[in-house]
Design a protein around this nucleic acid. Structure first.
Length: 425
RNA sequence: GUGCCCGUAGCUCAAUGGUAGAGCACUCGGUUGUGGUCCGAGCGGUUGCCGGUUCGAUCCCGGUCGGGCACCCCA
């Protein structure tokens, strides 16, 4: 068999130890915030039936048309790697009869998502999201709270350069009227559209609005806007959401051309984009999806939510040089062990430092004192403890101040206290 | 999926149409059980992979895989 160099699949990468602290940091902050706001954690499978996404995300969405990872089981079921989190959470809500819980049901999740897309800066085929869903409440306050939380979370993470772009898509009562107006508008102008948009005209007309082709952008400027077609209820809903945001001092930008790539959104849709102009790297996106639960077989239940791209947040944290805590606390003490007897006794000694809450390190496999002290030095510990044959026999240990090289022999039973004392100064 | 750029040791890079080096990193040593600086040694690459041109290719050509960027789209 030919030796083939193994590598991770395209667009999928390893998250190495030195990057784990970013994930830890982001997850910790989001837990702090979301716990307080009453979001309960839910985990759903990374694989679901294709049908679920077909019905939720939408057949004509790019996700279903070209990005979905599908697989056939040995039993013949068609499954898909989840491209996003909401569908699975809603499925779980219905399947587990969560409609009998007090509403709204507030759920949060995090985990890998999969899209077969062309990898690029901040875009991977396996990427990580944190998401929240508030199910069973149609009020404006929910939309506003979600947006506020997104804003707050970014702020807590040390990212304050994001704006909320917001729009309302209307609902099943008023959207048809809008879509018709849009269709009429484009009907006479279809010749000017790009190839893609000509296709969109038939399949998913809303998406014409966020095409980036120059001619299409030009046309969309004059196109009818969703807000002008909202019925009274939708209009009032949108207005109130904005009022809430004003009150909460969340800066937002009304963007009539903001539509989302997923079919299930109704009324409020929003995206968090960085300040820089023309940046498309949205880091949080979401909206209201009052129809989705019905579509997936539940009873009529309004809901809203968002998802945050963790990988993009990590990039932003690095770019902004945000101070992210080390993954492991810096060790204060290094335990040098020489010879069998010392190594045997070291296990308990090491453990007594852990119990005392003192960060210690050792390198149990190494024999020479030289290489062990080298490591101690590299780790930047303040104290080295030298524990050899002789000391193991005498029941003592040598305590060395790394800065000065000054050493002292201490009775073994007093060493933890002595280290504690010295670390205080 | 499309276009442009890229692919030499873990990292950063060098080199020549005749099969490759440096720095850093890593391991070890420089007196018996003592680090940082210094010195020395070692480890480490079928030059991403496959094929073509050639007497000969890491360098030329094609393909492929992977990466970067832009587009499409999106978190």
């Amino acid at each position: 068999m030919a030796k083939v160099k193994l590598q991770s699949p395209k667009g999928m990468r390893d998250i190495l130890p030195e990057d784990q602290r970013y994930f830890k940091y982001i997850l910790k902050k989001s837990d702090q915030l979301l716990d307080y706001y009453g979001f309960e954690r839910i985990d759903t499978p990374m694989v679901e039936s294709v049908e679920l996404f077909l019905r939720s995300v939408g057949e004509s969405s790019d996700i279903m048309e070209k990005e979905i990872y599908t697989l056939k089981t040995k039993g013949g079921d068609m499954l898909a790697l989840r491209p996003e989190g909401t569908a699975g959470v809603v499925r779980a809500y219905i399947e587990n009869g969560m409609n009998v819980r007090p509403h709204p049901v507030k759920l949060s999740y995090w985990g890998p998502m999969f899209r077969h897309d062309q990898p690029q800066h901040g875009r991977y085929r396996q990427f990580y999201q944190i998401g929240v869903e508030t199910i069973g409440d149609s009020s404006e306050a929910v939309d506003a709270e979600l947006i506020f939380l997104g804003y707050k979370l970014l702020d807590m993470l040390g990212l304050d350069n994001y704006n909320v772009h917001i729009n309302s898509l209307g609902d099943s009562y008023c959207r048809p009227g809008y879509l018709k107006a849009l269709k009429d508008y484009y009907k006479n102008r279809s010749k000017k559209l790009c190839v893609n948009c000509k296709n969109r005209l038939k399949i998913n007309i809303l998406r014409l609005l966020d095409c980036k082709e120059a001619e299409c952008v030009e046309l969309s400027k004059e196109a009818p806007q969703t807000v002008d077609f909202l019925d009274d209820e939708c209009k009032s809903h949108f207005k109130h959401v904005l009022e809430f945001l004003d009150e909460a001092k969340v800066p937002y930008i009304l963007n009539p051309r903001l539509v989302r790539g997923l079919d299930y959104y109704t009324r409020t849709v929003f995206e968090f984009l960085p300040d820089e102009e023309n940046s498309q790297a949205s880091v949080i996106a979401g909206g209201r999806y009052d129809k989705l639960i019905e579509v997936l077989g539940g009873s009529k239940t309004p809901a809203a939510g968002w998802a945050m791209g963790i990988d993009r947040v990590v990039l932003a944290l690095k770019e902004k040089n945000v101070n992210v805590p080390e993954g492991l606390p810096k060790p204060k003490v290094f335990l040098v062990q020489l010879g069998e007897a010392a190594k045997r006794k070291s296990i308990n000694l090491y453990e007594s430092f852990r119990k005392a809450g003192i960060e210690a390190k050792s390198s149990i496999g190494r024999d020479s004192i030289k290489s062990q002290l080298r490591i101690a030095n590299r780790l930047g510990v303040r104290l080295a403890l030298i524990f050899g044959q002789k000391e193991a026999l005498d029941g003592t240990i040598i305590l060395r101040e790394m800065d000065t090289g000054v050493q002292e022999t201490i009775p073994l039973e007093k060493i933890v206290d002595e280290v504690k004392k010295r670390l205080k100064n």
